[in-house]
Amino acid sequence: MSERQIQLEVLRYNPETDSEPRYQSYSVPCLNEWVVLDALNYVKDNLDPTLSYRWSCHMAVCGSCGMMINGEPKLACKAFIHEYTDQIRVDPLANFPIERDLVTSVEDFITKLASVKPYLIPKSDQPVSAGEFKQTPAELKKFKQYTLCINCMLCYAACPQYGLVPEFLGPAAISMAHRYNQDSRDGGRDERQEVIASDEGVWECSFVGACSEVCPKHVDPAGALQQVKVASTIDWYKEHLMPWMKK
């Protein structure tokens, strides 16, 4: 296992002591198999206990450690040192307010996620004693991909539209609405449509596709948004041109 010295340039900001953000550079001896998170942990344990960042699982499933690494939104636990040169810059996730160092505010995302009613609104009520709802593997496959979102928010950091229009619901929230809309057990699409087909909803998306490129779980939110747009357009036609078609 080879070792090399990395210059880790980290954005620092403490609202109590700093008037504006600044960069601090750390020299870190890294094993080649390390991820950027390991380098940050080295700094925290050996060089500077005041550095703040979030992390937990170290296996790309808890979604805590999203940050900008050399300008790209990445999970620090899945950004391999061997893919970088000896100079690595780490910034907090773009498009979110900084709370401290690499910690950004999650509140806006959570509010947006909650607004799309991301839970099953069953077509028919059935008591637990009646057993499970049947769902074939093919029905599951229709939405499975969209269930894989770990709420890491990398897609919001990559989304140019969210950067410009903070009201935009954004890729992950709309994908999650789509996930439930596509679930054969669900009957809540009309309720969600009020939110996701609104001005701040899917129509804000300019379809750049950056969200899908950075998604560490291959959820393909851009694909979900495109499908929602098509479905919403069909709704509009049904309502305005063919009212007798409306369900």
Binding site: P122, F133, L140, T147
Partner: peptide, 16 residues
């Protein structure tokens, strides 16, 4: 089963 009713995407048999 309650989790299934809340939407948990359990893997399925061919019969659903």
């Amino acid at each position: 089963t309650q989790l299934e009713h809340w939407g948990c995407p359990w893997s399925r048999e061919p019969d659903g």
